[in-house]
């Protein structure tokens, strides 16, 4: 496996290898020298067609801790009508000798197209409403650190599943890792044919919470109500938001996650986001470790170390 585009492409052993590697690399952040020489002389390009300072910085920190040269390439207002096409951008990256391209794009599937035009590894940092595999990896990493296991963990993902690349990647990866996923959302925000996904679906958050080891709140954009996905922010928040009262229904050791950025007061109340159950700050730190692991395993050797395991 040259690229990491979909979490569904990761076998169980690939996923565990990434998490274990990240666990080792997490120590680097605590050392006096926060850097490893591993990717010295390799070039990693952050190709961002969509603003995401958080994700870009996370990848940049990961690449730099591995001593890679990092080039940031931000393309504003991407569309074929304006400016350079994705293919021309890809050819430019080729000419610069990119060993790895981290791509964030507003169009689903753009990383697959890019992978046809560059020789280096393509790492999907979020494409449209498709996938965000490193987010799912860092979420799994955070769950394993907090709760000690992933097998049979009961994970409830709440919110705008239809438009969420985080949800798609998490469902695929957590299923591979043996967790039991339940999606909770208003039916309008679940894709048609969601019953073909390897997870359960429910509409009622209150009955799902007592059976959850992890509850992951997805960002819900207020604009969705204009397209009649739900009547009002207030109604959404009342039915699907996580406040302190709802949080009390969770088992004692359950954790609350959010991929960020949060809409405080919409899908998550401030007192929940700031509670000890919340892993939101750890998720950021873990993101760097997981992305270091992915960069190392894809770019560190003569060939990638992923994709060799059993499915």
């Amino acid at each position: 496996m040259l690229h990491l585009i979909s979490a569904a492409d990761l076998s169980h052993s690939d996923a565990v290898l990434i998490l274990d590697t990240a666990e080792e690399l997490a120590q680097v952040g605590d050392r006096s020298v926060k850097k490893l020489p591993t990717l010295r002389g390799r070039t990693v390009v952050n190709l961002f067609f969509e603003d995401s300072t958080r994700t870009r910085i996370s990848f940049e920190a990961a690449a730099k801790r591995l001593s890679a040269d990092v080039l940031n390439f931000a393309v504003k207002g991407s569309s074929v009508s304006k400016g350079e096409s994705l293919k021309d951008t890809a050819l430019t990256l080729e000419a610069m000798g990119a060993d790895g391209v981290v791509i964030r794009h507003n169009a689903s599937g753009a990383p697959y197209r890019l992978a046809e035009w560059v020789r280096g590894s393509v790492i999907n940092a979020g494409d449209g409403t498709h996938e965000h595999p490193t987010q799912a990896l860092l979420d799994a990493f955070t769950m394993r650190r907090r709760l000690g296991r992933l097998a049979d963990l009961r994970v409830t993902i709440v919110g705008d599943v239809l438009h969420s690349r985080v949800a798609r990647s998490n469902v695929a990866l957590l299923h591979t890792l043996g967790a039991q996923v339940t999606l909770v959302a208003p039916p309008t925000l679940l894709p048609v044919a969601v019953e073909t996904w390897p997870c359960e679906v429910a509409y009622d958050l209150d009955s799902a919470l007592p059976k959850s080891d992890v509850v992951m709140m997805l960002r819900v954009q207020r604009e969705r109500m204009q397209a009649a996905y739900f009547p009002s922010a207030r109604e959404y928040s009342r039915r699907y938001g996580l406040d302190a009262e709802r949080m009390a229904r969770l088992p004692d050791d359950a954790i609350v996650m959010h991929p960020g950025p949060m809409n405080r007061g919409m899908e998550i109340a401030a007192e929940v986001a700031d509670s000890p159950r919340s892993t939101i700050v750890e998720q950021v730190a873990n993101g760097v470790s997981v992305r270091m692991a992915v960069l190392y395993l894809l770019l560190g050797g003569s060939e990638p170390a992923l994709g060799g395991g059993e499915r």
Binding site: G109, D127, G128, T129, R165, A193, T196, W197
Partner: peptide
């Protein structure tokens, strides 16, 4: 973007 069904759900393309 494509037929609405199991494939569009997985690919994250508007159905």
């Amino acid at each position: 973007q494509m037929n609405e069904g199991a494939v569009s759900a997985r690919l994250g393309l508007a159905g």
